[in-house]
Design a binder for these strands. Structure first.
Lengths: 111, 111
DNA sequence: GTATAATACATCGTAACACGAAGTATATAA
DNA sequence: TTATATACTTCGTGTTACGATGTATTATAC
């Protein structure tokens, strides 16, 4: 998928991945990858950005002797997802503009 | 609309705006603006990029004593639009991933 | 008559972003 | 012992959208 098209989707995908239950980097990648390709460097950049924007909170916990950073969605994060749903409506109208057919056999001259 | 979300859409919007008939900068902006906000500097950057990628060709013509640069879509440009339609399917699956409810809420929903 | 808006195109600098590359560290399976 | 899976981090780079700014002509309003 085109990189540019992914932008704006990735942040919300990560939020969606932790929406139902707290998750951690490695798991988020596995959950999101079937839908969008997402590298580790990209993911951790996104997590930092979302944390800075207070869309998620972080807590470190031990899991089988190893430390894991768990990410928890905040109300701002949930709001972002809702906002995205509205933006999707705009996306749909843009999609229609792009895919709409012309009225055939009109004059091709530019007036 | 979120800037990041617009990326990847803008190029295809511009291609769509010249798909049916050759157009020029000022007109493209007017045609696209009802759907996506698009500034002049952004448009001309995009036009240059699309020209470099051979997705459109340019010819200058006089219109009422003034020079205009007309942009004409190429087969590569038309292919890009078709490609976008396929990418849109991926977008849809991502959208579903983002908006899918958790199992608890799923049960209360009408199928 | 002249000020102002509309038309039309162009360039520069900047901040945001995705991502490959590289690194650190532990646990488990071959 | 080696390789793979798990888990997180940082750096550098190229792409991009856009505000600011500039140039020029034509049409309209005052």
């Amino acid at each position: 998928m085109d990189i540019q098209l992914k932008r704006g989707l990735l942040d919300v995908c990560v939020l969606a991945a932790i929406k139902n239950e707290d998750s951690y980097g490695y798991k988020i990648i596995k959950d999101v990858k079937p839908y969008v390709e997402l590298s580790e460097s990209t993911l951790y950049t996104i997590l930092k950005r979302l944390e800075r924007a207070n869309m998620l909170s972080v807590h470190t916990a031990e899991h089988e002797g190893r430390l894991r950073k768990y990410y928890h969605i905040t109300s701002a994060g949930l709001n972002r997802i809702e906002e995205f749903k509205n933006e999707w409506k705009e996306m749909l109208s843009i999609y229609k503009f792009i895919t709409k057919e012309d009225i055939q056999n009109e004059q091709t001259r530019v007036s």
